[in-house]
């Protein structure tokens, strides 16, 4: 913000903080193509100029795609679900499919994770709206050298949040699925949910449009 000379607003108080809030940031070690944040400004700026300035100020690989003027309402309230793409190298597609079937069949899948409040146990099943194994023909560029199963997930935003690693823990709980190497996870989209279960770009409300992304 400072390098781009953004006229950022600060909170009041003894140690003023810049007004920046991240909505549902992706966990460490996870790639993302859909992160959103909200900033408060002291003075109006032209959105596209702000986008270009921030994009240039950020490290390579962190790209600012679009800036819109907030139409009121909190960004966090518009994050209802997230769409994840998970690659599981050295996992066989059929094995994954069996694990996913067992997961889907369960009413509740309890998993554990360390949170800031300590170790917590919670249900990883209910928040999962869809969990699909992509068939090998859907894999990126032809047949990979090593087998690599691919999972696509849509998870509702709940508290405590259910993250992709929690769903993978769930697959371990129901089917002993133990990926031999670290899975590669990418968030593809997040936003509000339609009645049909599609994810809507959370900035649509500000643009006045209604494009549906993801599913």
């Amino acid at each position: 913000m400072r390098r781009a000379a953004v006229p950022i607003a600060f909170s009041q108080g003894f140690t003023p903080h810049p007004k920046i809030s991240y909505a549902s940031a992706a966990p460490t070690g996870v790639a993302s193509e859909a992160e959103y944040l909200e900033i408060g400004l002291q003075a109006p700026v032209e959105p596209e100029a702000l986008r270009a300035a921030l994009d240039a100020a950020l490290s390579p690989g962190l790209d600012v795609l679009e800036v819109v003027i907030a139409d009121g309402g909190s960004l966090a309230d518009r994050i209802e679900a997230s769409h994840w793409h998970i690659e599981l190298p050295e996992v066989d597609t059929e094995t994954l499919r069996a694990a996913v079937d067992a997961f889907t069949a369960a009413d509740e899948v309890l998993v554990e994770r360390m949170t800031k409040q300590g170790r917590r146990t919670f249900d990883a099943r209910a928040a999962v709206m869809s969990i699909d194994v992509l068939s090998p023909t859907q894999t990126p560029s032809g047949a990979p050298a090593v087998p690599c199963a691919i999972l696509e997930l849509v998870v509702r935003q709940v508290t405590p949040s259910v993250r992709p690693d929690d769903v993978l823990s769930g697959l371990r709980v129901v089917a002993d699925l133990e990926p031999p190497v670290s899975p590669r996870v990418t968030r593809l989209a997040q936003g509000t949910l339609t009645a049909q279960g599609a994810i809507v770009d959370p900035l649509d409300a500000d643009r006045g449009g209604a494009a549906i992304v993801g599913h």
Binding site: R3, A5, A53, A56, A57
Partner: peptide, 9 residues
């Protein structure tokens, strides 16, 4: 004082 946004290189 510099006015406006900057595009740092």
């Amino acid at each position: 004082p510099i006015k406006g946004l900057k595009t740092p290189t």
